[in-house]
Structure formats: C-alpha cells, structure tokens
Amino acid sequence: MNDHDDLFSLDLGAYVLDALEPSERVSFESHLRNCAKCQAEVAELLPVVDLLPLAVDAVEPPQELKARLMSAIADDRSEKPALVPLTGGAPPRRSRPLLSRGEALLGLVAAVIIAALGIWNHQLQNQIDSQKQSIAYQQDVNRAILSGASVAQLAATSAGSAAQATMVQPKDGGSPYLLVGNLPAAPNNKVYELWYIRGATPHAVKVFHYSGSSPSIVPIAQPIASHTVAAITIEPGPQGSKAPTTKPIVAGKLNA
C-alpha cells in the first residue's frame, strides 16, 4: 500500500461510523471505488457498526406510535381508497321549497366536505403517482449502481419538493446520462436545462423535456470532466439559456 492509500485508510473507521465531514466523505468514497483493500475492510467493519444499536438500553415506544405509523402508511398506499359516499343516493330535490337555516348550514358543510374530499382524493392520486415514480426512479438508480457506474445524486433545493435527479457515469467510460423523476411541471414554453458548474461558472449542457408521468433517462454528450457540481433549472424554451436565469430545482456535487 502506498502513502496515498495509507492516508485514506486512516479515515476508514470514521467512514463506517459516518463521522467524516462531507468533503472528507466525498474524497474517501472516490478513493474507495478503486481500492479493493479498503473495500474489503469497510465490508469487514460495517457489520460491527450494525451491531452497535444492540448495546442500547431497551425502551418501549408509546403505543400511539404504531397507530400514527399505520395511519401514515394508509395515506401512502398505492391502492385508491374507496371514498364513503356522504349519502345513500341523491337527495330528493325540493321536497320542501326552502331549507331551514340549519339544513342550509348542513348543506354548506356537506358541500365543503365533498369539495375537500375531492381535493384530497386528487392530492392522494398525485401522491400515489409520485410514489410509483419514486420506486421506478430508484430501480433505475439501483440498476446503474449495480452495473458499477459512478452516481451522484442531485438533491432538491426546495423543502417539500419530491424532485429527484441522479447523474450517472457508466463504468466503461461511456457518455454520462441523467436520471430524473418527479420534477415539478415546467410552465408553458419553458424547458429544463442541465448545467455543469466549475468554480462559480455554470456551463450549459443539455436542454430537455420531461413529461412528468414517469422517470426519464436523459443522454448527455458532454463528459463530466473536471466539473464539480451539476444543477437543473427551468429556462425559456425551446433553446434554453446560455446562463441560468432561475434558481436550480436540484443540484449536487459530482464525484471526482
């Protein structure tokens, strides 16, 4: 093992304990991809780290936690829940010419509930679609990893955004490509644009469209080279921009 390898192997314990600073982690993982000796030691020590939780004194969680979890799971299920109709059928119309104030109020409440259920149902369906996309997207990412490709995740820049993007550099040195899923809808006459960034200078890489219905693979002709960051913005279509005009929707470090 040379000095370079020795330097990295010192960080091995901290790596498996997740105690490296982010920059140290990126550097170590870059080394790890090509160092069989460090890979073997990481694989040897990770199971030891996995056993550390057993050393913790056992504490029973509150029973309500299970109810909360199962409720969250129910919200997340891919089956469309049956909405219970508010009435057994259409109410008889105008059985009386005027509704009492209480009936009118009830009617208003019912209308609000129906509207809210409709919105909720729509949101639920969107959520389900988003979940399906996430799974399909993750499968694409896993396939890339299993093929030995180098991957770099671009994280959503807005809290609550489900946008997913990963830059993939195939192991054989072929052209990189971009995996995207759950990107926010681009407004009319707008397109998505991928940027490579080195220092503070963004370089336009690729303009692409995204239907929003399923994860997409975007082939990239331009090699990642020495660029350190990638980002995606929404730009005026159809040409895109020479420099970003909007805040990135996803961004992330590229592996060295």
Binding site: L12, G13, A19, L45
Partner: peptide
C-alpha cells in the same frame, strides 16, 4: 482516526 479504526 486511530481510535475509531482500531476500536472497531
């Protein structure tokens, strides 16, 4: 670094 790695 040494304490972590050797300890593990």
């Amino acid at each position: 670094k040494g304490r972590m790695r050797i300890g593990l």
